[in-house]
Write a protein that binds this DNA or RNA. Sequence first.
DNA 1: AAGAGGTACAACCGCCATATG
DNA 2: TCATATGGCGGTTGTACCTCT
Length: 277
Amino acid sequence: MVRKPITSRHGEAAAAVNAGDMAAAEERERKGLWSPEEDERLYTHITRCGVSTWSSVIGLRRSGKSCRLRWMNYLRPDLKKEPITDREAETIISLQKLLGNRWSVIAAKMPGRTDNEIKNYWNSRIRKRQTAAAAVAESRAKTEPPALAAGDEPCADAAAVEATAAAPSSPPPIAARLPVFACQLLDGGAVAATQSSPTATEQLVNGAGSSESEASAGGNGGGGEDYSYSGGGVDGDMVRHLLALDDLDLLIDVPGLLDSWECELYYPEDSSSSMSN
DNA sequence: AAGAGGTACAACCGCCATATG
DNA sequence: TCATATGGCGGTTGTACCTCT
């Protein structure tokens, strides 16, 4: 949604009561929505000079932080413009459950999506749904006490309840701390868009001696997202080992590892073909 | 048709980490 | 070692737009 630029919010331009103060504020630093001209200027600057120094965008009375934010959240050419799909929403729920509110990390796992976008989506939709679902669950709990067997863990996350209800054919439950990935983080299944140089984590894991071919990178058009899945036998032992180490960051940073492992769990007879749809 | 309330989303704020002099 | 600048991140706010009554 494109809105007309305004100056009546977020700053001294709006606070300045007379024209002189307004002009002075404008001279200092602009705030509020970006105009198409500013966008164009920033875009030209970044494409020409790169993103080395945000504060050096000539002719823009914007802070470096503001420029960076605008580029990251709106102007970047690799951003997806279409709405977040149900599949992506599932991914967000899963990753949020796994990582908490580390939106930048979650965004890094979802090419074309920004942390701000994901955060907004979560705050405006998912969290609300969770709250509502939790309220329903609470009212149910009051009327009908749960009959949990010893060792059973009540589902603490209302989203998981909702996701389960929304997807009757979803895979069997696994440990509550694990994400309910829909077999793939990306739309389109077997994607091999990977970073050109391996992360330290990748090097570490690859160097550990297993699944090197599965987790190895292909080429990447940039942006740093580290996705890969080439199909077939990801080493579940590695995943279990990482879980034992309680290093979820490490686990989730390995391209294609976790989701393909879950596919093994869910679709043991056909884990490779299930990755594509 | 109009007002109220809700929703979506852009962008600011404050804090923190890192780089640089 | 310290001070300052800069960038990154999550939380939050404000407003245009939408839907409902």
